[in-house]
Amino acid sequence: MGITQPETVPEPKYWHLKTVLSEALDSEFAVGEILPNERELAARFGVARATLRQALEQLELEGRLQRRRGVGTTVAPPRTVVAVGDGERSWPGGGPEIWQPVDSAEAQPPHAVARALGVPSDDPVHVVRRIRRSHGQPVAAELLYVPAATLPATAALGTLAGAARARAVLRELQRLPLDGQDRSVELGSARADDAKKLDRLPGAPVLLVTTRYFAGGGTAAVSVATYRADTCRLTFGDTGGPGMQLLAG
């Protein structure tokens, strides 16, 4: 049986149309603008509607388009820079307020997080939930795990709830001298709760950014941030500091 060489395989029609549509988005449409309906687009580019749908689906996967119920297909907003390299050295909530605190409660951490923190998995820890938005839309959800031993002076937390409690945990964390931090990025699938927060379907591709914060000779906190993979891309280079950056749209 012969093997077909990649260069001899013709480009699928929908893929070529995707390139043409992408150029049109750059030159003819503004962010948030609603595209013409499928019938008009198919007639303009001289393709079947099935071919058009494939091209639109690919552009949606790449984060160029967004489909909104009751609105239609719109042009996605530009991507924003989120540093995840060595250039950023601060506690969560210590820099510009790009994350919105949602709530905080005591809960048992996942086994992998407990191992990273060096605590028994049945020991409750402070769990802070935060959300990040871009152009009014959620692009990432974070769970920050902080052992009680990291924040010994938190008796007043029992009188707080919701976002106020989350901010109080972050304030106490920022009082500690930060020794350093490290990050890892991996591809994953959205769990049901994350999918709901990020307006995605369960199982949709996401990027998991795990950050360990070090203080007092050990791991003081662990953050697990879930980014929508359809609006994120990774770049490597020297932009404000050596290391890696994550671009989220």
Rank of each mutant, 00 (worst) to 15 (best):
G85F: 08
L59H: 02
R79S: 14
S184E: 15
L176K: 04
P12I: 09
G217M: 09
P177C: 03
G218H: 14
H135E: 07
K18Q: 10
R79H: 09
G203M: 00
R212S: 10
Q100E: 14
E7G: 10
A248V: 15
P124H: 00
R228G: 08
A83K: 08
P120S: 04
D103P: 07
G32W: 11
T74K: 11
M1F: 05
T4C: 07
A141I: 01
R171N: 13
P109Y: 04
L178K: 10
G218Y: 02
R212P: 01
P92Q: 03
P242M: 01
A164P: 00
A164D: 13
G95C: 02
G72S: 11
F45N: 07
G46M: 10
L247R: 03
M244G: 01
G217L: 01
G203A: 02
Y145W: 13
L25H: 08
D238M: 14
R233E: 07
G46W: 05
P101Y: 00
A48E: 12
S134V: 11
E142D: 14
L117R: 00
G240E: 02
V31T: 00
L144A: 06
A48W: 00
D122K: 03
G93A: 13
P10F: 04
A114D: 02
A156E: 12
R89V: 15
D199S: 13
E28M: 09
